[in-house]
């Protein structure tokens, strides 16, 4: 992992809720668990020693069940919540030391946010909502109108400018939410369970929209979700939280192939591995011996390879990265990878 393009970085972040967070911090650092802390001091351990690096132009997905602290964590990135201890570095600078006005500038210009419940201004039109960030910076309506309209068009909301949010469906409201975030022209976008309130079909649409926008805009996106399928679809870097602590983080494929913990094994047990796993995670990096049935790309999903092989298990493929051959994929390896590893679960 190279440091040169790390945009946001969280270092030893702790958040404790209660009467005297500082007073019990040392006990947490000495390894007290969430339940013990609650029982002995009546403080809630929100976040426990979080260390995450988020690279520029990537989607970092923070995943966890409700109560795992993921929404608390994302609110530390723009200091909607103040940490008990730790550092939040943006472009190498610790924003926790920033004054209120500098922080406000960060929120206006460098970091935008999309919310689970949309949080649009109900008394403003769609256009005014999309231009909210610019209006906050002091632009008049005439000045921000073009910019806001451009982003509304980009998210597929042509001709809705003068509607009010309550006149739109949930999916359309969240499109306004995304347009509002994009119109601020910030490098970093925080998305707090942005698609969780939408129904499944619309959610898939919105995920596709986000990936499409991301391919073009290359923002640094921090995405919170409790849905593993969504996490695996979007993530360049996946962070799994449990009880306020990071259980495992890394490339989603690696987490899927090598879950570090029974908790994550349970998590990944139910997903469709053929659709999520890619050739690069399964292949051998030796050149093929003998006949190849054909070529596949490193980023093809296993599902598509099975389709290519027409279900036969005695075939092998040459793997290409662009035009360059990088390894071999045998159908036997592929089939093995489809079975989740359950060593620790069996041992337990």
């Amino acid at each position: 992992m190279s440091d040169d393009n790390i945009k946001v970085s969280i270092r030893h972040l702790y958040k404790i809720f209660g009467e005297d967070p500082e007073g019990v911090l040392d006990r947490v650092k000495d390894g007290m668990t969430k339940d013990e802390l609650m029982a002995e001091t009546n403080h809630v351990l929100g976040l426990n020693d979080i260390n995450v690096d988020m690279r520029e132009g990537e989607i970092t997905v923070i995943m966890g069940l409700s109560g795992s602290g993921k929404s608390t964590l994302i609110r530390h990135l723009n200091r909607l919540i103040e940490p008990t201890a730790g550092e939040v570095l943006v472009d190498g600078e610790d924003i926790l030391s920033w004054s209120e006005s500098r922080l406000r500038r960060l929120r206006r210009e460098a970091m935008s946010m999309v919310f689970q419940k949309f949080a649009l201004l109900p008394h403003r039109t769609v256009l005014e909502n999309a231009g909210m960030a610019l209006a906050t910076e002091g632009y008049k309506r005439d000045d921000y109108e073009a910019e806001a309209r451009k982003w509304l068009d980009r998210v597929g909301l042509q001709g809705q400018d003068d509607q009010y949010p309550h006149q739109l469906s949930g999916g359309m409201q969240q499109r306004v939410g995304i347009a509002r975030a994009l119109a601020s022209n910030s490098d970093i976008m925080l998305m707090d369970e942005a698609f969780s309130a939408l129904d499944p079909l619309i959610r898939t649409d919105m995920q596709d929209l986000l990936l499409e926008l991301q391919a073009e805009l290359k923002k640094t996106i921090v995405f919170i979700t409790h849905d593993l399928d969504e996490a695996l679809k979007l993530a360049d870097h996946l962070v799994i939280l449990k009880d306020g602590a990071v259980v495992q983080q890394g490339e989603p494929q690696k987490i899927l192939m090598n879950p570090s913990d029974p908790y994550i094994e349970d998590f990944v047990a139910d997903i469709n591995r053929a659709r999520v796993l890619r050739v690069r995670s399964v292949m051998e990096s030796t050149p093929p011996e003998g006949d190849c049935f054909g070529d596949v790309d490193v980023n093809d999903t296993l599902e598509s390879v099975i389709a290519r092989a027409e279900g036969a298990v005695d075939r092998q493929f040459r793997v290409l990265d662009g035009d360059k051959p990088v390894g071999t994929l045998t159908m036997v390896d592929l089939m093995r990878a489809l079975v989740p590893r359950e060593s620790s679960a069996a041992a337990a």
């Binding site: 723009n78 909607l80 922080l103 406000r104 500038r105 960060l106 929120r107 206006r108 210009e109 970091m111 935008s112 946010m113 919310f115 419940k117 949309f118 949080a119 649009l120 201004l121 109900p122 008394h123 909210m132 960030a133 906050t136 910076e137 509002r180 601020s184 925080l190």
Partner: peptide, 25 residues
């Protein structure tokens, strides 16, 4: 509360929040 949080997240000042969000709502 969600709308207020959004106003904070987009860097509104207290005055902007009061006249632009709280009083109208």
């Amino acid at each position: 509360k969600d709308v207020i949080e959004a106003a904070d997240a987009f860097g509104m000042t207290r005055r902007q929040k009061l006249f632009g969000v709280q009083i109208p709502l």
